[in-house]
Structure formats: C-alpha cells, structure tokens
Design a protein around this nucleic acid. Structure first.
Length: 591
RNA sequence: GCGCCCGUAGCUCAAUGGAUAGAGCGCCCGCCUUCUAAGCGGAUGGUUGCAGGUUCGAAUCCUGCCGGGCGCGCCA
C-alpha cells in the first residue's frame, strides 16, 4: 500500500522500460496544473537528454503503451513533453476503499524495529523553562512519533544540562552568601518548598552569572565549584542532587502540559564515569592529545575547506566539558541501546560542535559508519526585530506563561460559543488546553525546521486561518457529522460502508488529496521535516471544508453517493487524527 | 579573516530542476431558517536582493556582488 502517485510510477516506469529507456524516468507526481490533469510524468523530457531522442516522440511512445490500460481516463501529451494522466473514478475509488480498511491508511511500515535515539530536550537544570525550549521539545517529539509510526523503536532522551559551569556559578553564589541551606534543606515532598527554591534560583542565577562575567576571581571560583561538583565533593554534590530533583519536577510539568514525551530522563552527569576511560582509550590509540594544557581530539581533515577546531575533552583545570559529555553520551547510547540512528534535535548554532563530536565518534570507532548520526538542527526563534526573542522587559518568556495565555484565550472563545453552556467545567478546561497546545505546536511546526523564524505571541495563540485550532475544528465537525449519521440510523442508508462507489464533482479533489498521505509521510520521515505534515494537514482540512460547504452529506438523496461521501468523511477524519497525533496534537470531541 | 545559513506579496511563511510562484494575516466585497461562521466564496497584492552562467526548462544548480543572521578550544 502506498500513494496513488507511487502506484502510477510503477506502471509508467514499466512503460519507459519497455520503450528501452531507464525506468526511473517514469516518476509520476501529482500534477501542479490540476486544471490540466491529476498526475504528471516529466520523464520524456529527461529521456531526450539520455537517449538523444525527441521528447515528444518519447512521450508518444510511452503514452501509447499506457492508453491500453483500463485505469486511465486520459493520457495526454502537453508542452515540450509532459505526460498528463487522469485516472478513472473507479480507480480512485478502489484505492480509497482499500485505504478505508487499512489501519495504517496506506502508509507503509518502512522500518523493522531498528532502535533510534532522539535527543531533543536539553533544558538546563536550575533554570526555568522558557520559549527557547519550545522548538527542541516539539520538533523532537514529533520526529519521535513519526519514526515510531514508521516502525522504529524510538527512544526520546531529554538529555538535560546538569553537569556544566552554570551550576558552579549558582552553587558558588549560595556558598559565598552563606545560604547553601536554602538548597540543602529543601523538602522534596513539599511543593511549596520545592517552588520556593525554584523561585530563588530563577532570581539568583542571572545575577550570579552576570557577576561572574564581570569578575575574574568570581569566575575562577565558579569553575572550581564546577569541578568540585563533578568530583562529587560536599556540599556541592548534595546541592546538585537537590537542585536536579527540583528541576525535574518543573520539566515534567512543562513537558507534560505540551504533551511532549521522553523515554529517557538522562543528563550529562549520567555519563561522567564513562569519560575517563574513554579519554584514556582515545589517548592510548593516539586520537586524543594534549594541547595547551587541555586534552583534545583533532578532527581536522585534509580535504576541509573550513577550519575545524579540535574537540575539547578535558579543560586545563581538569573539568569536563560538553565535548566530553556529548562524546561519552554516544558511548553510552551505543552500549545501552545499540541504535541504528542517533538524531540530535538541537539549535542550528551548535552545528559545528556536533560535526566535531561526530567526527571524533567515527575516528575513535565509538559509532561505526553503519550508525547514522544526524544533526537535525532547528533555526532560532527571533523577535519581530529579527534578533533572538526577548520579552518587552528584556527577559525570557516562561513556557508556562505562554501556555496560560493560550488557555485563557481558548476558554474565552469557548464561553462565547453556544455549545459551552451545557459543557461540564472539566471538559471545557480540557478543550481549552487542547486548543492552546494545538495552536502553539502548529504555529511552530509549520515552519521549516532549519530556518530561523519570527516568534509572535499573538500569532502563536491565534485560532483562525492556518492554525492548529482550525485543524481541530475541521476534525471536530466531521466527528459531529458522523455522530449524527450514526444516530439517525444511517447504516441502513449507506453509512458504515467502507466502499466508495460514486463521486460527485466536489468529491474528486478531496478524494485525490487523500491519496497523497504516504508520500508526504515519507518526505517528513526521510528529511526530518514535520512541516510537510503540517502543510498536508492544512490542505486536507481546507479541502474538506470546501467539500463540506459545497455539498450536503446527510441529506443527500442518492443513497450510494451518501455512503461514499460518509466514507470520504471517515477517511478524512482518520487522516487528520493520524497526522495530528504525529504532530503531538490531540483532537477533542467537540469545541 | 575563514566557514555555514538566509533574502519570495504590506507582514509572517510555503513551493522533490517543470507548465500560470502558492498560503495565512491585513485590507475590500459577498455568505449563518440545511450537517459547528474557530467557517466558506471572491477581489487586491510579485522583475523570487542584483548581475551573469548551466539547462528544452531556474525561486531552486554554478560564479560574482549587495544586504542580514550565525559560528569559529577551555559556556552549552
């Protein structure tokens, strides 16, 4: 089971082959001129180059072979050699009828349970989660869902920053001011105590960080504190344990609200003990060397056009750094999970760093060549001024505040609507939350992953036009319609039928679009680009809405047509729910 | 200095080398006594930064220039 276009590709490729031409010229795609045809093949023009033949003559020959087949309503040649193809309604209907009985909606399973580790968290402990953490979380979680649906065994790792210098800065500040008990005496079972510490850290860290930037002595102290924490010395290690526990509570809450899931709650600290043997091993085999008092892995290659600096493993003061933790994390992942791929969903700006890590991992044999290491970087969230986003006050916008804004707006909208009056309070709250999360996630995911984009709060929590709530709305309308069909006993009037037997004029565009899903899914999977699924979901919702508006379904007199249309509705809903679930967006029953 | 990314409608963004470059928002005109108006239909809006080149065909590939962003050993 695949898309209609790929089925046609098989047929047209065979026709090219019979004509003595390369089969891959037979690639068929959905036409970009729907007014001319449903599908097109451009291979005849390319054939002119490889076979030195007249493209129109090639097209004629191929088209001649195709015309003999029954499933084509039209095979035409246009322009320099486009082969334009229309299918018969029966052929389209047959394809959709098969899809309607397939739990995977014609999307093939491409993997056989190979393990994939996805790294998409990266929040630092001791700091509040802000909108800067949004992209990694939701893009990574979506990629995890996509790969899982493709048949991989997926492991999402939050990989928190829990071993770095920012903690030395923080702990040093507590100790200097004699307030370490604020950390050490926190009661993890008491939510008030937990949030009090969190508040204190959120206020303290920016201050301490700024101070250590100014003051060299302070900076040295902080580095020393970092080293002591990494060496598990008192009271640093005890403080670290408390801070980490408190921070995880906050992360779970934030990611929970966004419906972002992790299978592994690992951090940099988890690989600490793997680093010394790894460094020794790399030194023994000559890959790691001493340089300016530090230990580094030179990863430069002769063919490099750019300068690739060595990967720094151990700092002059003996402390570890992200180079060592990230490399050791590859060691750990290979040991524990044996993945076929490791995907890093990280800010683009860390691209060079991961290039260094990947090279070191290959050189040292830590990750064999067969293991795919992918840096799936994402662009920066800028403010309307084109600079990295800051609130008007110049600070960060907390994730919780953003979500609260969306929920407040959705609640207001619900209260304005008529159907909210007979709705229990819990359902209203649940819908408002789903709407808000749909808005936020879709607003982010519809952007191309790699590109920077402008973050606009008002746009992110808007519910009209090309937004998450619009998609929910269309899905909810179909649910409502199918409920009505069911309660009016439509099964005797065609409902419940998975056959599509008849099309009206307004049905064809929707029917054809439904056949594209497998190709869109494959594109999103292969390129790690969720925005393709967003585009598809939006087109589907829009095409459905247009269909819904132009014809009546339940009141359709023609029983066969009514049954076929209900099946189209069922399929549309199933696809919308599938795609939205891949995007981590839940559909309510009504809104 | 070296390297990477970006430049598409007023704004925000799409477009596996294909035919007439598409959406959303905004603005304007219509449509709620039929299945949810968080909707639908229509109108306006473009020398795809500039100049060359490759190709039957370029927003897309190559070269140069202009403009913006980012990265380049002891932060992550």
């Amino acid at each position: 089971m695949t898309s209609l276009a790929s089925k046609l590709t098989v047929i047209v490729s065979a026709a090219f082959e019979e004509a003595g031409l390369p089969a891959d010229l037979g690639l068929v795609r959905v036409s970009d001129r729907p007014d001319l045809a449903q599908f097109q093949c451009n291979g005849a023009m390319a054939a002119a180059k490889v076979a030195k033949k007249n493209p129109r003559a090639v097209a004629e020959e191929v088209a001649g072979r195709l015309k003999a087949r029954g499933e084509f309503a039209k095979v035409e040649i246009a322009g320099p050699g486009f082969i334009n193809i229309d299918l018969t309604p029966e052929a389209i209907a047959g394809h959709l009828s098969a899809m309607a009985t397939d739990a995977r909606l014609s999307v093939p399973e491409m993997a056989q349970g190979e393990t994939v580790v996805l790294d998409y968290g990266g929040p630092n402990i001791a700091k509040p989660m802000h909108v800067g953490h949004l992209r990694a979380g939701i893009i990574g979680d979506t990629l995890r869902r996509i790969m899982a649906f493709a048949g991989y065994k997926t492991l999402g790792d939050v990989h928190m920053g829990d071993w770095g210098t920012h903690l030395g800065i923080l702990f040093n500040d507590y100790i200097r001011s004699g307030e370490q008990d604020k950390v050490l005496k926190v009661d993890l079972d008491d939510p008030a105590s937990v949030s009090a510490l969190f508040e204190d850290m959120s206020e303290r860290y920016p201050r301490a960080s700024a101070a250590s930037k100014e003051d060299e002595a302070l900076r040295a102290q902080a580095q020393e504190a970092t080293l002591k924490m990494q060496n598990r010395e008192a009271p640093y290690y005890e403080m670290w344990q408390k801070v980490k526990a408190v921070s995880i509570v906050g992360m779970e809450r934030n990611y929970g609200m966004l419906n972002v899931h992790f299978d592994l709650w690992k951090g940099e600290a988890d690989v600490h003990d793997l680093i010394p043997p790894m460094v020794d091993d790399l030194k023994a085999r000559g890959y790691a060397v001493e340089s300016e008092g530090a230990i580094v892995v030179p990863v430069k290659r002769n063919e490099d056009k750019k300068e690739v600096p060595p990967l720094l493993l151990v700092k002059r003061d003996g402390a570890f750094i992200y180079g060592s933790t990230d490399l050791a994390t590859v060691v750990e992942r290979m040991q524990l999970y044996g993945p076929s791929k490791i995907i890093y969903v990280v800010d683009q700006r860390q691209g060079l760093h991961f290039e260094q890590v990947f090279r070191a991992a290959r050189m040292g044999g830590i990750a064999p060549d067969a293991v795919e290491l992918t840096f799936a970087g994402f662009g920066t969230m800028n403010g309307p001024d084109g600079k990295p986003f800051k609130t008007r006050a110049g600070g960060v916008l907390k994730l919780e505040d953003l979500i609260a804004m969306g929920v407040a707006k959705a609640t207001e909208r619900l209260n304005d609507a008529n159907l909210a009056k007979d709705m229990p309070e819990t359902e209203r709250a649940s819908i408002a939350h789903k709407v808000a999360v749909a808005a936020i996630k879709f607003a982010d995911l519809q952007n191309q992953r790699q590109a920077d984009y402008v973050f606009d709060i008002d746009r992110m929590v808007s519910f009209e036009g090309k937004t998450g709530p619009y998609l929910l709305y269309q899905a909810v309308r179909i649910k409502s319609l199918l409920r009505k069909a069911e309660s009016s006993g439509s099964e005797t009037r065609g409902f419940g039928n998975t056959e599509i037997q008849k099309f009206g004029d307004s049905d064809i565009p929707l029917a054809l679009l439904l056949c594209e899903l497998p190709d869109v899914f494959e594109g999103a999977l292969n390129n790690y680009t969720p925005h393709l699924l967003c585009e598809y979901a939006y087109r589907l919702a829009q095409t459905f809405s247009s269909f819904y508006n132009s014809c009546h379904i339940l009141s359709e007199e023609d029983e066969v047509l009514r049954g076929s249309r209900l099946t189209l509705c069922t399929l549309t809903l199933a696809q919308l729910e599938l795609v939205l679930s891949l995007l981590g967006i839940e559909v309510p029953d009504r809104m």
